[in-house]
């Protein structure tokens, strides 16, 4: 395989990265911000991407923060998924991120790259979609902006061209003590894209929240599904059946599984997870 036709830049500061994107775009290049590069390189290899320049964000200190401070936890977009899992500041994030790809690839994939992936799965985003407090720090030409993740998410996390994700911040109260379950179901192999990945949390008021990846062409949460799942007077299997019937969109049919199979696996998995979650709490 010959070298790819890519220019490479590794800025040291947020401003350098923003300026580079602007300058390269003006020069008629097609720049991409570069995290772990696992998706960019595989897409460029099969000529599925127009990028001809990459701006590697991994030397920018703000993109590598990984800390607890003032009652919150902050995760830099440039953190590798294995670092996130090893430090385990947010066990639910560990549980979802630690099932992406395989161990070696996870030590290359970054959190930001997974959240902004063009692929449908983006499993590491599930905890952020379920969180009330999760905020994203976004670098823009006008300065650093903070947005609630849920407000900026509509099938994808919305960024303007030339802006990039710097880090994500989650309130410590949401992280601590929330009961959760996360399960990835694949067709055959342990390592594969998900047939469906489900994350559940039980909130302090007893309400259940769920997030799904693999069911549709993008990860999603649904208040209607949450309401069904939160009705503790009904059995887990009844709630799971009802939830699957009231998903906001039909299940995919693809090489991983037919629609009917996905529905069956989702219902069955969801019922088991609900039962376990409620037994434990």
């Amino acid at each position: 395989m010959a070298p790819f036709n890519l220019l490479y830049y590794r800025p040291d500061t947020v401003d350098q990265a923003l300026d580079l994107f602007r300058i390269l775009s003006k020069e008629q290049h097609h720049p991409a911000f570069y995290g772990g590069g696992t998706e960019i390189l595989t897409r460029v290899r099969v000529q599925d991407a127009r990028f001809d320049a990459v701006i590697d964000l991994k030397a920018i200190p703000e993109v590598l923060v990984h800390r607890e401070y003032q009652g919150s936890a902050e995760f830099g977009a440039g953190l590798r998924l294995t670092h996130v899992a090893n430090r385990n500041l947010w066990p639910l994030l560990t549980a979802t991120a630690d099932r992406v790809a395989d161990h070696t690839v996870r030590s290359q994939i970054t959190l930001g790259g997974n959240l902004l992936s063009a692929l449908p799965y983006r499993e590491a985003i599930l905890p952020f979609l379920m969180s009330d407090s999760a905020e994203a720090k976004v670098a823009t030409i006008g300065g650093m902006r903070t947005h609630r993740v849920r407000d900026r998410y509509d099938q994808t996390f919305k960024l303007k061209p030339g802006d990039f994700l710097v880090s994500l911040v989650v309130d410590g109260h949401e992280i601590q003590g929330l009961a959760f379950k996360s399960r990835k179901m694949t067709r055959i192999d342990w390592i594969d894209y998900p047939l469906v990945t489900i994350a559940l949390i039980r909130r302090r008021n007893g309400g259940i929240r769920a997030a799904f990846s693999g069911w549709a062409g993008f990860p999603f949460v649904s208040s209607r599904v949450d309401k069904i799942l939160s009705n503790g007077r009904r059995s887990p299997s009844d709630r799971a059946k009802d939830a699957v019937e009231h998903m906001p969109m039909p299940a995919l049919s693809d090489t991983h599984g037919s629609r009917a199979y996905r529905e069956f696996v989702t219902q069955y998995t969801l019922a088991g997870m609900l039962e376990e979650l409620e037994e434990e709490t």
């Binding site: 595989t42 070696t104 690839v105 290359q108």
Partner: peptide, 23 residues
């Protein structure tokens, strides 16, 4: 050359890395 098989694995600072996915 797609990150799946691991035949290209080398160590970077003693961490296994798929060299087909690294510039």
């Amino acid at each position: 050359e797609n990150g799946d098989c691991g035949a290209c694995t080398v160590l970077i600072d003693n961490i296994p890395t798929k060299s087909c996915l690294m510039l």
